[in-house]
Amino acid sequence: MNLPATGRRVLVSGASRGLGRAVAQAFAANGDRVAVHYGSREDEARRTLDSLAGDGHVLVGGDLSDPAQAELIASRAADGLGGLDVLVNNAAVNERHPLAETSYEQWAEIWQRHVAVNLLATANLSHLAARRMIDAGTGGRIVNIGSRGAFRGEPDHPAYGATKAAVHALGQSLAVSLAPYGIGVASVAPGFFDTERVAHRLAGAEGEAIRAQSPFGRVATADEVAAAVRWLASPEAEWSSGTVLDVNGASYLRT
């Protein structure tokens, strides 16, 4: 069960912009072919697709919170690429909902949405991709995008922190169960990183406070996080299966 170093078939969920785009670009630059998934931002996903080095990449759309659509997404990605060697579970929602400021109705809706997208969609895509890897008999990699917030707490985004902690636990469980098939599973736990979605938060006093969380005095780039993802998906990273890799510039240290 030898995973190739290049020319792999990679599905990246939530790849229309931000970290997902950076991850797709990192794999394409490595000589891999990428299925760019999007939920609703087709135009932005096409820009991601157009930015990728090489050829043979495909675009797949669909709502991952729906198990039936998740199955279609995996099928279209595998059909378009001729199989799947790597899955990157990047798609996620992150809505602000501090308990004291959120009505119960909003609270329940937000929690259901976070669980459906951040956790259940990750579990479902992992099953769909791993089943194909098992049947192919060539091994593979699954890399989940977790969060520093799973460890330090997210008072304004508790459902995000909780579901990311669950994603870490899911990845470790799958790492044990899928190792006999040559499939490595790992997670990255990024701290704050710069994307267009959070650019407004990095301006002014809030931005200064965010940058001060790291002794480096800055936040990460999406490319730095994507590089960690690509390494965890590499043949050399098999013995790191089960790990949760902190990528936070020493802004939060676990014991």
Rank of each mutant, 00 (worst) to 15 (best):
H168R: 13
S147M: 05
S147Q: 04
A159T: 04
V176G: 08
V185W: 07
R141H: 06
V185T: 05
D156Y: 10
K164W: 13
G153H: 05
A175L: 12
R148G: 08
I145T: 06
G146E: 02
V188A: 02
A179P: 06
A169E: 06
P190W: 01
I183V: 14
I142Y: 09
G171W: 06
L170S: 13
V143D: 06
G146I: 09
A189Y: 01
I183D: 09
E154I: 05
P155V: 05
R148F: 06
K164E: 13
G153A: 04
Y181F: 15
R152W: 01
V188W: 05
P190Y: 08
A159C: 00
R152H: 02
S173M: 15
H168Q: 11
S177L: 13
G153L: 01
L170M: 14
H157G: 12
A165H: 03
E154V: 05
V167R: 04
G140Q: 07
K164R: 09
R141G: 03
T163C: 02
A175C: 07
E154P: 01
G149H: 00
G153W: 13
A166M: 09
A166T: 13
I183Q: 03
G139R: 10
A166H: 12
G161H: 01
N144W: 01
G140P: 00
A166W: 11
F151W: 13
I145R: 01
S187W: 02
K164H: 02
A179G: 10
A186N: 14
G161V: 11
A186C: 13
S173A: 14
H157C: 00
S177E: 15
G140D: 07
S177T: 14
G171T: 14
V185Q: 07
A186S: 15
V167T: 08
G161C: 10
V143W: 08
A169V: 08
S187N: 14
P190N: 09
L174T: 14
G146P: 02
V167I: 10
S173C: 15
S177P: 02
G161A: 02
P158C: 06
A165P: 02
G184Q: 12
H168S: 07
G182M: 03
L170K: 12
V185F: 11
H157M: 07
I145L: 09
A169W: 10
A162D: 10
G161Q: 00
V188T: 13
G146L: 05
G182Y: 12
G140W: 03
G139N: 05
S147T: 06
Y181P: 02
L174Y: 09
P158E: 10
R148N: 12
H157T: 10
G171R: 13
V167L: 07
A150C: 07
A175D: 04
H157F: 09
F151K: 09
G146C: 03
P155N: 00
L178V: 02
I145P: 04
P158D: 03
S177I: 06
L174C: 11
A179H: 14
I145Y: 07
T163W: 08
Y160R: 09
G140S: 09
V167C: 05
E154Y: 01
K164V: 03
E154K: 10
A186G: 14
